[in-house]
Write a protein that binds this DNA or RNA. Structure first.
Length: 350
DNA sequence: AAGGGCCGCAACCGCGTTGCA
DNA sequence: GTGCAACGCGGTTGCGGCCCT
Protein backbone atom coordinates (compact mmCIF):
# COMPACT_ATOMS: atom_id res chain seq x y z
CA UNK A 1 0.00 0.00 0.00
CA UNK A 2 1.36 3.39 -0.95
CA UNK A 3 1.69 6.40 1.23
CA UNK A 4 -1.31 8.63 1.61
CA UNK A 5 -1.01 11.80 -0.49
CA UNK A 6 -0.12 14.94 1.45
CA UNK A 7 -2.96 16.86 -0.19
CA UNK A 8 -5.90 16.49 -2.56
CA UNK A 9 -4.01 16.26 -5.83
CA UNK A 10 -7.14 16.88 -7.90
CA UNK A 11 -7.81 20.28 -6.35
CA UNK A 12 -4.25 21.49 -6.24
CA UNK A 13 -2.63 23.73 -8.76
CA UNK A 14 0.73 22.65 -10.13
CA UNK A 15 3.38 24.32 -12.18
CA UNK A 16 4.97 27.76 -12.02
CA UNK A 17 3.79 30.23 -9.41
CA UNK A 18 2.03 33.39 -10.48
CA UNK A 19 3.07 36.78 -9.05
CA UNK A 20 -0.30 36.94 -7.28
CA UNK A 21 0.30 33.66 -5.53
CA UNK A 22 3.78 34.82 -4.52
CA UNK A 23 2.39 38.03 -3.05
CA UNK A 24 -0.30 36.17 -1.13
CA UNK A 25 2.09 33.64 0.32
CA UNK A 26 4.83 36.11 1.14
CA UNK A 27 2.47 38.58 2.77
CA UNK A 28 0.91 35.95 4.95
CA UNK A 29 4.15 34.38 6.12
CA UNK A 30 5.82 37.72 6.80
CA UNK A 31 2.87 38.68 8.93
CA UNK A 32 1.97 35.41 10.62
CA UNK A 33 4.77 32.97 10.03
CA UNK A 34 4.06 29.48 8.81
CA UNK A 35 2.16 28.59 11.94
CA UNK A 36 4.22 25.45 12.10
CA UNK A 37 1.95 23.72 9.63
CA UNK A 38 2.64 23.96 5.95
CA UNK A 39 -0.09 21.51 5.05
CA UNK A 40 -2.83 23.73 6.47
CA UNK A 41 -1.32 27.01 5.31
CA UNK A 42 -2.58 27.13 1.68
CA UNK A 43 -6.16 26.57 2.80
CA UNK A 44 -5.86 29.38 5.33
CA UNK A 45 -4.81 31.88 2.72
CA UNK A 46 -6.91 30.59 -0.13
CA UNK A 47 -4.15 29.22 -2.30
CA UNK A 48 -4.88 26.12 -4.35
CA UNK A 49 -1.43 24.79 -3.72
CA UNK A 50 0.03 21.81 -1.90
CA UNK A 51 1.59 22.71 1.43
CA UNK A 52 4.87 21.23 0.32
CA UNK A 53 4.78 23.39 -2.75
CA UNK A 54 4.22 26.48 -0.59
CA UNK A 55 7.11 25.55 1.64
CA UNK A 56 9.40 25.05 -1.31
CA UNK A 57 8.37 28.30 -2.91
CA UNK A 58 9.02 30.17 0.31
CA UNK A 59 12.34 28.54 1.06
CA UNK A 60 13.73 28.68 -2.44
CA UNK A 61 12.39 31.95 -3.73
CA UNK A 62 10.33 34.18 -1.47
CA UNK A 63 12.29 33.98 1.76
CA UNK A 64 14.23 37.15 2.63
CA UNK A 65 17.97 37.36 1.95
CA UNK A 66 17.87 34.81 -0.82
CA UNK A 67 20.83 35.39 -3.08
CA UNK A 68 20.11 34.96 -6.77
CA UNK A 69 22.55 35.20 -9.62
CA UNK A 70 26.06 34.06 -10.37
CA UNK A 71 28.12 32.12 -7.88
CA UNK A 72 31.46 33.56 -6.86
CA UNK A 73 34.74 31.72 -7.19
CA UNK A 74 34.89 31.30 -3.44
CA UNK A 75 31.44 29.77 -3.45
CA UNK A 76 32.56 27.42 -6.21
CA UNK A 77 35.50 26.29 -4.12
CA UNK A 78 33.35 25.75 -1.07
CA UNK A 79 30.82 23.71 -3.00
CA UNK A 80 33.55 21.69 -4.64
CA UNK A 81 35.36 20.92 -1.40
CA UNK A 82 32.20 20.02 0.41
CA UNK A 83 30.91 17.86 -2.41
CA UNK A 84 34.12 15.87 -2.35
CA UNK A 85 33.92 15.52 1.39
CA UNK A 86 30.27 14.80 1.98
CA UNK A 87 28.72 14.20 -1.40
CA UNK A 88 25.31 15.44 -2.41
CA UNK A 89 24.25 16.65 1.01
CA UNK A 90 22.95 19.85 -0.49
CA UNK A 91 21.30 21.16 2.64
CA UNK A 92 24.57 20.92 4.55
CA UNK A 93 26.45 22.58 1.72
CA UNK A 94 23.81 25.29 1.53
CA UNK A 95 24.24 25.95 5.24
CA UNK A 96 27.78 27.06 4.49
CA UNK A 97 26.65 29.53 1.83
CA UNK A 98 24.42 32.22 3.29
CA UNK A 99 21.63 33.21 0.95
CA UNK A 100 21.96 30.15 -1.23
CA UNK A 101 19.37 27.40 -1.19
CA UNK A 102 20.05 23.72 -1.47
CA UNK A 103 18.01 23.61 -4.65
CA UNK A 104 20.07 26.42 -6.13
CA UNK A 105 23.32 24.72 -5.28
CA UNK A 106 22.11 21.38 -6.53
CA UNK A 107 21.08 22.88 -9.85
CA UNK A 108 24.27 24.88 -10.12
CA UNK A 109 26.35 21.80 -9.45
CA UNK A 110 24.50 19.55 -11.86
CA UNK A 111 24.35 22.03 -14.69
CA UNK A 112 27.55 23.99 -14.49
CA UNK A 113 30.07 23.49 -11.73
CA UNK A 114 30.49 19.77 -12.34
CA UNK A 115 31.25 20.42 -15.99
CA UNK A 116 33.54 23.25 -15.13
CA UNK A 117 35.62 21.16 -12.77
CA UNK A 118 35.59 17.81 -14.50
CA UNK A 119 35.62 19.19 -17.98
CA UNK A 120 33.07 18.84 -20.69
CA UNK A 121 33.89 15.23 -21.28
CA UNK A 122 32.25 13.50 -24.15
CA UNK A 123 29.43 11.39 -22.87
CA UNK A 124 30.90 8.24 -24.31
CA UNK A 125 34.13 8.76 -22.43
CA UNK A 126 32.44 9.76 -19.24
CA UNK A 127 30.22 6.75 -19.30
CA UNK A 128 33.12 4.40 -19.55
CA UNK A 129 33.53 4.42 -15.82
CA UNK A 130 30.04 3.60 -14.81
CA UNK A 131 28.50 2.03 -17.86
CA UNK A 132 31.35 0.30 -19.59
CA UNK A 133 31.00 -2.80 -21.67
CA UNK A 134 33.60 -5.50 -21.76
CA UNK A 135 34.83 -7.17 -24.88
CA UNK A 136 31.86 -9.51 -24.86
CA UNK A 137 29.48 -6.63 -24.88
CA UNK A 138 28.24 -7.45 -21.42
CA UNK A 139 27.19 -4.40 -19.52
CA UNK A 140 29.51 -4.18 -16.57
CA UNK A 141 27.25 -1.77 -14.83
CA UNK A 142 25.12 -4.69 -13.91
CA UNK A 143 27.87 -5.60 -11.47
CA UNK A 144 26.54 -4.83 -8.02
CA UNK A 145 29.93 -3.43 -7.02
CA UNK A 146 29.82 -0.63 -9.56
CA UNK A 147 30.45 2.75 -8.00
CA UNK A 148 27.61 5.20 -7.91
CA UNK A 149 27.86 8.18 -10.20
CA UNK A 150 28.22 10.39 -7.18
CA UNK A 151 31.11 8.34 -5.88
CA UNK A 152 32.88 8.37 -9.22
CA UNK A 153 32.42 12.10 -9.55
CA UNK A 154 33.74 12.70 -6.10
CA UNK A 155 36.71 10.45 -6.70
CA UNK A 156 37.53 12.24 -9.92
CA UNK A 157 37.26 15.60 -8.26
CA UNK A 158 39.34 14.46 -5.36
CA UNK A 159 42.03 13.24 -7.68
CA UNK A 160 41.91 16.46 -9.60
CA UNK A 161 42.48 18.45 -6.45
CA UNK A 162 45.07 15.98 -5.24
CA UNK A 163 47.03 16.37 -8.44
CA UNK A 164 47.17 20.08 -7.79
CA UNK A 165 48.60 19.69 -4.36
CA UNK A 166 50.84 16.62 -4.73
CA UNK A 167 51.91 16.26 -8.31
CA UNK A 168 55.01 14.26 -7.56
CA UNK A 169 54.09 12.30 -4.52
CA UNK A 170 56.23 9.19 -4.33
CA UNK A 171 53.30 7.25 -3.01
CA UNK A 172 51.33 7.58 -6.18
CA UNK A 173 54.17 6.54 -8.41
CA UNK A 174 54.87 3.40 -6.46
CA UNK A 175 52.16 0.81 -6.89
CA UNK A 176 53.84 -1.35 -4.27
CA UNK A 177 52.75 1.14 -1.67
CA UNK A 178 49.13 1.02 -2.73
CA UNK A 179 46.62 -0.94 -0.77
CA UNK A 180 45.30 -4.13 -2.23
CA UNK A 181 42.39 -3.20 -4.43
CA UNK A 182 39.19 -4.99 -5.20
CA UNK A 183 38.72 -5.97 -8.85
CA UNK A 184 36.20 -3.22 -9.35
CA UNK A 185 38.63 -0.70 -7.88
CA UNK A 186 41.43 -1.95 -10.15
CA UNK A 187 39.12 -1.57 -13.10
CA UNK A 188 38.20 1.91 -12.04
CA UNK A 189 41.83 2.91 -11.62
CA UNK A 190 42.63 1.58 -15.08
CA UNK A 191 39.77 3.51 -16.57
CA UNK A 192 40.82 6.68 -14.84
CA UNK A 193 44.41 6.20 -15.94
CA UNK A 194 43.29 5.77 -19.52
CA UNK A 195 41.47 9.06 -19.18
CA UNK A 196 44.55 10.65 -17.70
CA UNK A 197 46.63 9.43 -20.61
CA UNK A 198 44.33 11.27 -22.93
CA UNK A 199 45.84 14.73 -23.45
CA UNK A 200 42.37 16.16 -23.79
CA UNK A 201 41.72 15.37 -20.16
CA UNK A 202 44.79 16.35 -18.17
CA UNK A 203 42.96 15.61 -14.99
CA UNK A 204 45.67 14.10 -12.87
CA UNK A 205 48.87 12.16 -12.86
CA UNK A 206 47.95 10.21 -9.80
CA UNK A 207 45.05 8.06 -9.00
CA UNK A 208 45.04 7.59 -5.26
CA UNK A 209 44.66 10.05 -2.45
CA UNK A 210 47.30 10.37 0.21
CA UNK A 211 46.60 8.12 3.16
CA UNK A 212 46.15 10.12 6.26
CA UNK A 213 47.27 8.73 9.57
CA UNK A 214 45.75 11.01 12.20
CA UNK A 215 42.12 10.27 11.44
CA UNK A 216 42.56 6.87 9.88
CA UNK A 217 41.25 3.96 11.88
CA UNK A 218 44.19 1.98 10.63
CA UNK A 219 46.59 4.73 11.51
CA UNK A 220 45.07 5.03 14.92
CA UNK A 221 45.48 1.37 15.60
CA UNK A 222 49.01 0.89 14.39
CA UNK A 223 52.06 2.09 16.21
CA UNK A 224 50.47 5.06 17.82
CA UNK A 225 53.77 6.43 19.01
CA UNK A 226 55.33 6.55 15.58
CA UNK A 227 52.33 8.20 14.12
CA UNK A 228 52.01 10.81 16.80
CA UNK A 229 55.54 12.04 16.30
CA UNK A 230 54.76 13.28 12.85
CA UNK A 231 51.03 13.95 12.93
CA UNK A 232 51.32 17.55 13.94
CA UNK A 233 53.90 18.23 11.29
CA UNK A 234 51.79 16.52 8.66
CA UNK A 235 48.79 18.55 9.69
CA UNK A 236 50.78 21.71 9.46
CA UNK A 237 52.14 20.87 6.03
CA UNK A 238 48.77 19.77 4.77
CA UNK A 239 47.22 23.02 5.83
CA UNK A 240 49.87 24.93 3.95
CA UNK A 241 49.42 22.75 0.90
CA UNK A 242 45.68 22.98 0.95
CA UNK A 243 45.81 26.71 1.27
CA UNK A 244 48.01 26.92 -1.77
CA UNK A 245 46.14 24.38 -3.84
CA UNK A 246 42.79 25.95 -3.16
CA UNK A 247 44.11 29.22 -4.39
CA UNK A 248 45.40 27.36 -7.40
CA UNK A 249 42.00 25.94 -8.15
CA UNK A 250 40.57 28.71 -10.19
CA UNK A 251 37.97 28.94 -12.85
CA UNK A 252 40.59 28.14 -15.44
CA UNK A 253 41.31 24.97 -13.49
CA UNK A 254 43.97 22.97 -15.22
CA UNK A 255 46.00 25.95 -16.30
CA UNK A 256 46.71 26.70 -12.69
CA UNK A 257 48.38 23.38 -12.03
CA UNK A 258 51.89 24.55 -12.73
CA UNK A 259 51.55 27.49 -10.44
CA UNK A 260 50.31 25.17 -7.73
CA UNK A 261 53.22 22.86 -8.30
CA UNK A 262 55.78 25.63 -8.10
CA UNK A 263 54.45 26.63 -4.74
CA UNK A 264 53.83 23.29 -3.17
CA UNK A 265 56.74 21.18 -4.34
CA UNK A 266 59.08 21.91 -1.46
CA UNK A 267 56.40 21.41 1.13
CA UNK A 268 55.25 18.31 -0.66
CA UNK A 269 58.73 16.83 -0.57
CA UNK A 270 58.83 17.34 3.15
CA UNK A 271 55.42 15.83 3.56
CA UNK A 272 56.39 12.85 1.42
CA UNK A 273 59.39 12.19 3.59
CA UNK A 274 57.25 12.07 6.65
CA UNK A 275 54.60 9.94 5.05
CA UNK A 276 57.09 7.50 3.54
CA UNK A 277 58.90 7.14 6.81
CA UNK A 278 55.74 6.15 8.58
CA UNK A 279 54.49 3.62 6.15
CA UNK A 280 53.40 1.56 9.13
CA UNK A 281 50.44 3.88 9.10
CA UNK A 282 49.42 2.67 5.67
CA UNK A 283 47.52 -0.42 4.93
CA UNK A 284 50.15 -2.27 2.96
CA UNK A 285 49.21 -5.46 1.17
CA UNK A 286 51.87 -7.59 2.79
CA UNK A 287 50.73 -6.50 6.20
CA UNK A 288 47.10 -7.27 5.99
CA UNK A 289 47.15 -10.76 7.52
CA UNK A 290 49.50 -9.69 10.21
CA UNK A 291 47.38 -6.70 11.02
CA UNK A 292 44.18 -8.64 11.02
CA UNK A 293 45.72 -11.10 13.46
CA UNK A 294 47.12 -8.37 15.59
CA UNK A 295 43.94 -6.37 15.94
CA UNK A 296 40.83 -8.27 16.74
CA UNK A 297 38.69 -5.32 15.87
CA UNK A 298 39.52 -5.89 12.21
CA UNK A 299 38.01 -9.32 12.39
CA UNK A 300 34.83 -7.80 13.68
CA UNK A 301 34.47 -5.43 10.76
CA UNK A 302 32.18 -7.88 8.97
CA UNK A 303 35.17 -10.15 8.90
CA UNK A 304 36.23 -8.74 5.58
CA UNK A 305 39.31 -7.09 4.27
CA UNK A 306 37.04 -5.08 2.07
CA UNK A 307 35.68 -3.41 5.15
CA UNK A 308 39.16 -2.60 6.29
CA UNK A 309 39.97 -1.32 2.87
CA UNK A 310 36.88 0.83 2.88
CA UNK A 311 37.87 2.25 6.20
CA UNK A 312 41.20 3.22 4.75
CA UNK A 313 39.62 5.03 1.85
CA UNK A 314 36.89 6.60 3.87
CA UNK A 315 39.16 8.08 6.43
CA UNK A 316 41.42 9.43 3.82
CA UNK A 317 38.57 11.40 2.41
CA UNK A 318 37.56 12.37 5.85
CA UNK A 319 41.01 13.78 6.31
CA UNK A 320 40.75 15.69 3.09
CA UNK A 321 37.56 17.22 4.35
CA UNK A 322 38.91 18.18 7.69
CA UNK A 323 42.14 19.55 6.37
CA UNK A 324 40.82 21.39 3.37
CA UNK A 325 39.99 25.02 2.90
CA UNK A 326 39.31 27.08 5.95
CA UNK A 327 37.15 29.43 4.03
CA UNK A 328 33.92 28.29 5.65
CA UNK A 329 32.64 27.50 9.06
CA UNK A 330 33.09 23.78 9.17
CA UNK A 331 31.22 23.03 12.32
CA UNK A 332 27.98 21.71 10.84
CA UNK A 333 29.88 19.49 8.47
CA UNK A 334 32.16 18.09 11.09
CA UNK A 335 29.21 17.25 13.23
CA UNK A 336 28.03 14.88 10.52
CA UNK A 337 31.29 13.13 9.97
CA UNK A 338 30.02 9.67 10.74
CA UNK A 339 27.75 9.62 7.72
CA UNK A 340 29.98 11.52 5.44
CA UNK A 341 31.27 8.70 3.30
CA UNK A 342 28.10 6.82 2.88
CA UNK A 343 28.21 7.20 -0.86
CA UNK A 344 31.54 5.47 -1.12
CA UNK A 345 30.53 2.73 1.18
CA UNK A 346 27.33 2.17 -0.70
CA UNK A 347 29.33 1.93 -3.85
CA UNK A 348 31.38 -0.87 -2.46
CA UNK A 349 28.80 -2.63 -0.43
CA UNK A 350 26.03 -2.82 -2.96
C1' DA B 1 12.58 30.86 -40.84
C1' DA B 2 11.81 26.58 -38.67
C1' DG B 3 12.61 22.84 -35.90
C1' DG B 4 15.36 19.94 -33.15
C1' DG B 5 18.54 19.58 -29.40
C1' DC B 6 20.63 21.39 -25.39
C1' DC B 7 20.77 23.92 -21.14
C1' DG B 8 19.33 25.99 -16.88
C1' DC B 9 16.00 26.60 -13.59
C1' DA B 10 11.79 25.88 -10.94
C1' DA B 11 8.92 22.68 -9.21
C1' DC B 12 7.41 18.05 -8.14
C1' DC B 13 7.78 13.40 -6.17
C1' DG B 14 8.75 9.99 -3.02
C1' DC B 15 11.13 8.37 0.85
C1' DG B 16 13.52 8.76 5.33
C1' DT B 17 13.29 11.25 9.58
C1' DT B 18 11.21 13.59 13.32
C1' DG B 19 7.88 14.86 16.63
C1' DC B 20 3.84 14.12 18.99
C1' DA B 21 -0.27 11.92 20.83
C1' DG C 1 6.53 1.51 22.41
C1' DT C 2 3.73 2.45 18.47
C1' DG C 3 1.51 4.69 14.79
C1' DC C 4 0.52 8.64 12.30
C1' DA C 5 1.15 13.19 10.34
C1' DA C 6 4.19 16.58 8.94
C1' DC C 7 8.70 17.94 7.68
C1' DG C 8 13.00 17.86 5.16
C1' DC C 9 15.83 16.27 1.75
C1' DG C 10 17.73 14.57 -2.63
C1' DG C 11 16.64 12.89 -7.12
C1' DT C 12 13.96 13.66 -11.06
C1' DT C 13 10.99 15.94 -14.29
C1' DG C 14 8.97 19.60 -17.06
C1' DC C 15 9.26 23.69 -19.37
C1' DG C 16 10.94 27.84 -21.48
C1' DG C 17 14.68 29.99 -23.76
C1' DC C 18 18.70 29.77 -26.51
C1' DC C 19 21.62 27.93 -30.04
C1' DC C 20 22.78 25.40 -34.00
C1' DT C 21 21.85 23.38 -38.35
Amino acid sequence: MGRAPCCDKANVKKGPWSPEEDVTLKAYIEKNGTGGNWIALPQKIGLKRCGKSCRLRWLNYLRPNIKHGAFSEEEDNIICNLYISIGSRWSIIAAQLPGRTDNDIKNYWNTRLKKKLLGRRKQSNFNRLGDAKDTNGVEENTCPNALSNSAVERLQLHMHLQSLQSPFSNFFNNRALWPKLLPVQEKMIQNLQSLNDNPNYPMTQHVLPIPYGPTSSVGNLIQEDNVKTSNSKVDELRKSLNGMSSSALRADGIEQTNMGFQQVSSLQAELDDILNNRSAGFYLPQQEDQMADQFDCFKEMNGSRESLMMSWWSNDFDATKSSSSNSWDSTPVLDHSEGIFRNYELGYNM
